[in-house]
């Protein structure tokens, strides 16, 4: 009897070690994220919403923070340390966990600019050689694979990210965002960020 109990205890430990973090909202790794990103990971500025973000994108960003390739000020200040001792396995599990939470739209952009943002998102501005965001981020800004979901993210987060490409941050990021975003004017950035913040 004692032996049996011991065996089940060993089994229980073994199982908890191999299971992913999903369904373990109390795990330390998740708690470390939600301190800043909000208990349901809906974002708490300046920390962006993680809920519903693409798994591969989240995982790539975690790697980017730990390797210091994502080098904008808040990333440097918070995320470099947060990911300093993150194992690839935990990064992978965290990405799965947050990608499976359902996202809520921030809806905090400027309503007046949303129509202009929608036009740029869908059509680009061919005369000025500005591409349509929809080509990569999808018809509903839902993202795919390593391309992030933009719909419903916070206005100020979207705005800062778009500004930062043009300011030379995240230089090692993959083609084509540094080129795309550096061509946008302040007003076009505000319009895009507004439109995107309202997408459900």
């Amino acid at each position: 009897m004692k032996l049996l109990r011991l065996k089940s205890a060993v089994l229980a430990i073994a199982f908890s070690a191999v299971s992913s973090l999903a369904g373990h909202a109390e795990s330390h790794a998740i708690r470390n994220c939600t301190w800043c990103h909000g208990t349901s990971a809906q974002g708490y500025l300046p920390a962006p919403r993680l809920a519903g973000q693409k798994r591969q994108y989240l995982e790539n960003q975690l790697v980017g923070f730990s390797q210091h390739t994502r080098d904008n000020p808040f990333s440097k200040q918070y995320m470099w340390f947060a990911t300093a001792s993150l194992s690839p396995k935990t990064a992978h599990d965290l990405a799965i966990y947050f990608s499976e939470l359902s996202p809520k739209p921030a809806e905090d952009g400027n309503q007046q600019l949303a129509a202009m943002g929608r036009k740029i998102y869908q059509d680009g501005i061919p005369d000025s050689n500005i591409v349509a965001c929809i080509a990569c981020h999808g018809p509903n800004a839902e993202g795919v694979r390593e391309i992030p979901r933009l719909g419903g993210l916070e206005f100020s987060y979207l705005q800062r990210r778009l500004e930062q490409w043009g300011e030379g941050y995240n230089k090692t990021a993959m083609h084509p965002m540094p080129h795309v975003a550096s061509q946008l004017s302040a007003k076009q950035i505000a319009a895009l960020a507004s439109y995107l913040s309202f997408i459900k």
């Binding site: 061919p126 050689n129 500005i130 591409v131 929809i134 080509a135 990569c136 981020h137 999808g138 018809p139 795919v144 694979r145 391309i147 083609h175 084509p176 080129h179 795309v180």
Partner: peptide, 18 residues
């Protein structure tokens, strides 16, 4: 440069949403 934003560097193709 505009074309290559979507069609990839040196227009070798790119996988966006499609």
């Amino acid at each position: 440069d505009y074309c290559e934003t979507c069609h990839g560097l040196s227009a070798r193709g790119f996988i966006g949403f499609h």
